[in-house]
């Protein structure tokens, strides 16, 4: 499903700085759900951004669903990668990032509208997702009327509404209290499984990481399996 081969990332105008990571090799199978851990500054979010095509890698290749997203010998085609991301990838952020001026329904419908779903299909799918995340009573609510947990539920529904092949969740429980965080992680797990989505969860929390199929740690030594103590 996701193949990362000899992936290197450097920053700076002439890419002369020390690499954030170097020669990463990694494979993620379809439907697999992994937790990506590592110290602050290890490059977890950068890796997620490169996988999503939001920034180019310095070297190496990424293949998602058989499609080459990023190769050192290819110029970065932002539009192609963006359209690919629109269809194939979903995101859940720590800060939810719901559009404050759209209601719950409209926020969830956003990726469907971007992918040109028909209005009737959108309605059906959004209602399905609302029911899944337990917010079918809050369809018309604006984000400011929701609790943190509810906002993250909407964010999960939005991330999975268009049935992406890959879900990238970056610290999705970072802004939530432990109880709500546990509920959200459980919901995320259920929804990933229900939709058959491959998922990467970036987290510092071992508790959150335990909800994944396996965990890997990003460090100077590369991406290595993480074993819980």
């Amino acid at each position: 499903m996701l193949l990362i081969h000899k992936l290197t990332k450097r920053f700076g105008p002439d890419l002369s700085s020390a690499p954030i990571f170097e020669n990463l090799d990694f494979t993620l199978n379809t439907g697999e759900y992994i937790a990506l851990m590592g110290e602050s500054g290890a490059g977890k979010s950068t890796l997620l951004n490169i996988i999503a095509g939001l920034e180019p890698a310095t070297n190496g290749e990424i293949r998602l669903a058989g499609q080459l997203l990023n190769a050192a010998n290819q110029p970065h085609d932002d539009d192609r990668v963006t359209l690919f991301r629109r269809q194939k990838i979903g995101f859940v952020f720590q800060a939810f990032h719901l559009l404050p001026y759209l209601n719950v329904f409209e926020n969830i419908a956003l990726p469907l509208r971007l992918n040109n779903w028909a209005a009737a299909e959108i309605k059906t799918r959004v209602q399905e997702m609302l029911a899944s995340v337990g917010l079918d009573e809050k369809t018309a609510a604006l984000p400011r009327e929701l609790s943190g947990g509810e906002m993250q539920r909407v964010a999960i529904a939005r991330a999975l509404a268009h049935r992406p092949q890959l879900l990238l969740a970056d610290e999705p429980t970072g802004n939530l209290d432990p109880d709500t965080a546990a509920q959200i992680m459980a919901l995320l797990r259920i929804e990933i499984q229900r939709n058959g989505t491959t998922a990467i969860l970036v987290t510092h929390s071992e508790i959150a990481a335990r909800s994944a199929d396996r965990a890997v740690e990003l460090s100077k030594r590369g991406l290595l399996p993480r074993h819980y103590g």
Partner: peptide, 11 residues
Amino acid sequence: GMLRHLGMTRA
């Protein structure tokens, strides 16, 4: 930034 994540192109 979120809209770019959701797949909105620069255009």
